[in-house]
């Protein structure tokens, strides 16, 4: 059984469907990369799993099972117990994820005071330990500083320390390095990998960067227009993609046209207007997810793409 199992998750934003049946799973200790462009639904998927969707976005179908228990049917009280302690999240923009008027030590310790009933002094002590664990130099002094006194990379370390405070089994990181320079991105990716190994924590890494995926992921779920279009082991996927969208991304080829508006999705397969493999069936029938033995792809021609040398 997987640690986290998302099945046929559907999310709507008023009349607009933003997730139309997302299925993915996460095993203990593994790194799953969720790859997609803006509007593909990768952040909404993470928010739905965390139970922090912004209204008017609502879950309209499917389930999110954590250790076999469907989180979507839990009362908010129970949900809150899972949030942070079992599944925690790191956001893209560490500056707006941190409160500018409290010291970083106060913010890292806040959850420990409220959830674990630690005293101020104990919480501060633990905050220093956590800052050490995310390799912030001079943690004992810096615990008293404010977010603006930290550089971008150090701020992201602070928000990682906050997420780790209750020792979660799953960490969801939503584009954690997108706002950072490339040399700092490398440091943060290394850190996430080390923390995952040290804590045997599962990592769901949301990204738009194929290089990042290749560097850190065990498995990958590729999203397009609110669906997972391909899911595979990272080595398999880079060797031979099974979905034409993945294939085009890997080749670095220009994909004609633009990602569709979720308000006005193309009929049939949402990718068909941009696809080199598109045939009549693609314009009328939405493809179901084809099981390809340990991997899957939502394409009528997945088996053909998989063996097409031109797709690599």
């Amino acid at each position: 059984m997987s640690l986290l199992d998302v099945t046929d998750l559907r999310v709507a934003f008023g009349p607009t469907t933003v997730l139309s049946g997302v299925s993915l799973h996460l095993d203990p200790g593994e790194t799953l990369a969720v790859l997609g462009e803006s509007g593909s639904g990768k952040t909404v998927t993470a928010q739905a799993v965390m139970g922090i969707l912004d209204p008017p976005a609502v879950v309209v179908g499917g389930c999110v099972r954590y250790r076999g228990q469907d989180l979507l049917t839990l009362p908010e009280r129970e949900r809150r117990r899972i949030r942070g302690r079992e599944i925690a999240m790191v956001f893209q923009d560490a500056l707006s994820a941190l409160n500018p008027v409290f010291t970083v030590g106060y913010q890292i310790g806040e959850t420990l005071r409220i959830r674990d009933g630690l005293s101020r002094r104990e919480a501060l002590h633990r905050a220093v330990e956590l800052m050490d664990q995310v390799r912030i130099p001079a943690a004992r002094q810096r615990v008293h500083e404010y977010p603006h006194q930290f550089s971008g990379g150090m701020r992201q370390r602070v928000s990682i320390a906050m997420a780790l405070a209750l020792d979660p089994a799953v960490l969801i990181a939503d584009e954690p390095t997108t706002a950072l320079d490339v040399t700092v991105q490398a440091q943060i990716l290394d850190l996430l990998g080390e923390l995952r190994r040290e804590r045997t924590m599962a990592l769901m890494l949301i990204t738009h960067d194929l290089g990042v995926v290749a560097q850190v992921a065990d498995r990958i779920a590729v999203m397009y227009a609110g669906r997972v279009v391909e899911q595979a082991d990272v080595h398999q996927l880079f060797r031979a993609p099974a979905h034409p969208y993945t294939a085009a991304l890997l080749r670095g080829a220009a994909i004609s046209g633009t990602p569709p508006s979720l308000r006005d999705l193309p009929s049939g397969c949402a990718f068909h207007p941009r696809c080199r493999y598109a045939a009549a069936v693609c314009r009328t029938v939405a493809p179901s997810t084809v099981d390809l033995g340990g991997r899957s792809a939502a394409c009528h021609f997945a088996r053909e793409v998989l063996v097409d040398p031109a797709a690599r």
Partner: peptide, 19 residues
């Protein structure tokens, strides 16, 4: 060296320079 290489087969084979 910090630019992620989009090829998982090279993972662990390159010794990155980390600033």
């Amino acid at each position: 060296s910090a630019v992620p290489v989009p090829d998982p087969a090279l993972r662990g084979r390159l010794t990155p320079i980390r600033l």
